[in-house]
Simulated scan of single mutants.
Amino acid sequence: MTPIATVDLDRWHEGGEAAATVLREVDAGMQRAGFLLVRGHGVPHGLPADLRAAARRFFALPPEVKQRYAVSVGGRGWIGPGLEANGYAEGTETPPDLKETFAIGADTRTGDALIDTVWFLDNVWPEEVGELRELFLAYTAAMRTLSDELLALFAAALDLPHNPFEGLASRPTWTYNINRYPPLAELGPPEPGQFRIGPHTDFGTVTVLDREPGAGGLQVYTEDGGWADAPYDPSALTVNIGDLLAYWSGQRWPAGRHRVLPPQASAPDEDLVSLIYFYELDHDARVTPLEPPIGRVSGLAPVVSAEFLRTRLDAITLG
């Protein structure tokens, strides 16, 4: 048994009792874990595999070539090993996460330099892997469409009279990371308390993950069961909500707490690549938490999306 529900967006689109069942499953699954497996997501067949293959070609480049695209956490380009420790987001000091990342993000500039230089930076495209740009753009377009649909699904699951996110994501901030988790044979033994990604919750509204299963893979935490391996379905995407959406729900739904295990001695050559889309809202979106009886906590103050996110991003950046 797994606390992570599997839902099918095609059944939601059917309407009637099929849709009502999906909405009940969404609410129950979110209350348990803040995670879902989502089928019927509409991502073009073959696109994730093509993007993953191109990313592997980039990660296989010599370090001195990747260094041309090097940035710090929150930047656009290559985030090399040793720069990020996600456990710090929940106050746990851990060694650096065992990964390298290539990141892009929203570039729909506002014209205000103070905003654009933080939230709408120019993306960087490695000339050595020319196909990455078009694959990235095709995939993130599909992710944007899916994420907006998920926000509508969540509003419907709470039986709200309208979707409160419709006016809050006209120029959203988002980040798209491709993480490579190198094998044990390359890294050597992990330090005590070191993970591929340390325990944390994400920061925004929804995170959409296309992952490869592995011995050193994704684990999800629930209050009832503690840490457990996340179920894997090759036809589904893994979706979790972040701190901002959990706050909007009045803490009815917990942000999905998770981690990625370090490479395991049982699989020393395991080399995994994950595709991760972090969706948020407009940088200046004002989020007002739901009051009881839908929300679980009353009197939570409204927050502005960018201010809410910035403090969390700073916490995980090393150096």
Rank of each mutant, 00 (worst) to 15 (best):
G80S: 10
A89H: 11
D50G: 07
V65F: 05
R56H: 12
L61N: 11
A55I: 01
W78C: 05
D50S: 14
D50M: 11
P63W: 05
R32S: 10
K66M: 07
A85H: 06
D50E: 15
A33V: 05
F58E: 06
L83C: 09
A89F: 09
V73D: 02
P63D: 13
L37M: 11
L51Y: 13
F59K: 04
V71H: 00
G34K: 00
E64A: 15
V38C: 12
E64M: 05
P44M: 09
W78G: 10
A89D: 09
Y69N: 05
F59C: 06
R76A: 13
N86M: 15
G82L: 07
W78M: 11
V43E: 04
L47M: 07
G87R: 03
V65M: 09
R56L: 15
K66N: 04
G74R: 05
G40S: 03
I79Q: 10
G87D: 10
G80Y: 00
G40F: 01
A33R: 03
L47I: 02
I79Y: 01
E84N: 10
R32Y: 03
G46R: 06
L36E: 00
A33L: 05
L36D: 03
R56S: 09
E84Y: 01
H41T: 00
G74N: 08
Y69C: 09
A49P: 07
G74P: 11
T94V: 14
P48I: 02
L37P: 07
P48N: 08
G75K: 01
T92H: 12
G75Q: 03
R32H: 11
R52L: 13
A53E: 15
F35Q: 00
A53W: 05
T92W: 14
A54P: 02
E90L: 14
P81K: 00
Q67D: 14
T94R: 11
V43N: 00
P48Q: 04
Y69A: 12
L83R: 09
L83I: 06
E64L: 08
T92R: 15
R57Y: 06
L83M: 13
E84W: 05
E93M: 14
F59N: 04
A55Q: 09
R56F: 11
R56G: 14
I79D: 04
R57Q: 13
V71S: 06
L47D: 04
F35G: 01
I79R: 04
P48R: 05
P44F: 02
I79C: 13
G74I: 10
G91I: 08
V73Y: 10
G42F: 01
H45P: 12
V43C: 07
Y88E: 11
A53C: 09
F35R: 02
F58M: 06
L83V: 07
T94Q: 13
R76Y: 08
R32Q: 15
W78L: 09
Y88N: 12
